[in-house]
């Protein structure tokens, strides 16, 4: 499953999906870190006014993993994501995908922004928003439409094709942003506090959607959040950041059974334990 989706940026290879699905590729991909952040630092300005936002950050994300980054607000999480997405250069250290240093937006990555109302094009309908990033992939029309339909169905927006983003509620708009990322079929999906400003019910739905797309599409997912419950619920591992400048306090493996369920998982004693571990890590005086 993972491999079939891994071919999408190479038109013409779509028909050779089967070839890609060889056991060797799958076997090595599972063990190797997909995304590797090594001693990453980001400083704004220079001289006495220099402001160090991120200092010596190191962590990895493995293929098919969901990793959440938690930390106090204003710790520089968005800056980190911008470095990972190739939108900003790191001051020192590297971020790499499969050992390839990121120095511009990588083709296998999509980013869901925190501010959904500003990340969608208000002049495009829902469907055209989802289609915009697909145009330059030069897909056959049929496949393009299929992808858009699939993505909209996955987020429960089929039937809202022709609406404009501003006609939708906040939660629906964020779904459009997620659908846009899904249709792009990234191998690595990064989300910046994606569910921060939606109501609790929608948030649960979107969290489950996030886990579902990992399972369905084999995506590697990195989520920045300030909600510890959410981090524990979603993650295979949680990267805990400390302020300021941001650095990794600890990486905590989350050992909760799959598939996760909003009611039963959250009521497990292990859930409470893990939650306490993460929380005490964040609250611990530096």
């Amino acid at each position: 499953m993972t491999r079939t989706l891994a071919t999408h940026h190479h038109p013409g290879m779509e028909n050779s999906m089967e070839l890609q699905e060889n056991p060797v590729a799958l076997g090595t991909a599972a063990a190797r870190p997909r995304l590797e952040v090594t001693a990453l630092s980001k400083t704004y300005g220079s001289g006495p006014n220099a402001k160090c936002v991120i200092e010596d950050l190191t962590f990895t994300v493995t293929t098919g993993e969901v990793v959440c980054i938690v930390g106090p607000s204003g710790v520089g999480k968005t800056t980190l994501l911008k470095c990972l997405a190739g939108l900003q250069p790191a001051t020192s250290g590297t971020a790499a995908i499969d050992g390839r240093r990121i120095d511009g937006p990588p083709p296998e990555m999509a980013l869901v922004f925190q501010d959904y109302s500003r990340s969608l094009m208000p002049w495009l309908t829902v469907r055209k928003n989802v289609r915009l990033p697909l145009r330059h992939l030069r897909l056959p029309a049929q496949e393009m439409n299929q992808r858009i339909d699939d993505a909209l169905r996955a987020v429960g927006l089929d039937g809202s094709d022709g609406k404009y983003p501003w006609q939708l509620s906040g939660g629906m708009q964020q779904r459009v942003a997620i659908a846009r990322a899904l249709a792009y079929r990234p191998e690595i999906l990064i989300m910046d506090e994606p569910f921060a400003s939606v109501d609790a019910q929608t948030r649960f739905e979107l969290e489950d959607l996030c886990l579902k797309i990992r399972d369905d599409f084999g995506m590697t997912i990195l989520v920045v959040t300030h909600d510890i419950d959410e981090a524990v619920y979603l993650s295979d591992r949680v990267v805990v950041l400390g302020a300021k400048p941001a650095r990794v306090l600890d990486v905590i493996g989350i050992d909760l059974p799959a598939p996760r369920d909003q009611i039963s998982t959250r009521s497990l004693p292990e859930f409470a334990e893990q939650r306490t571990t993460v929380l005490s890590m964040i609250r611990k005086p530096a």
Binding site: K82, A85, G86, L87, P105, P107, M109, A110, L111, F113, D115, R118, S119, M121, L132, P133, H136, R180, Y184
Partner: peptide, 12 residues
């Protein structure tokens, strides 16, 4: 944000 979106999705 729109500029970032265009960059991330590698629009020409």
């Amino acid at each position: 944000t729109l500029k970032d979106v265009s960059a991330v999705y590698r629009l020409s």
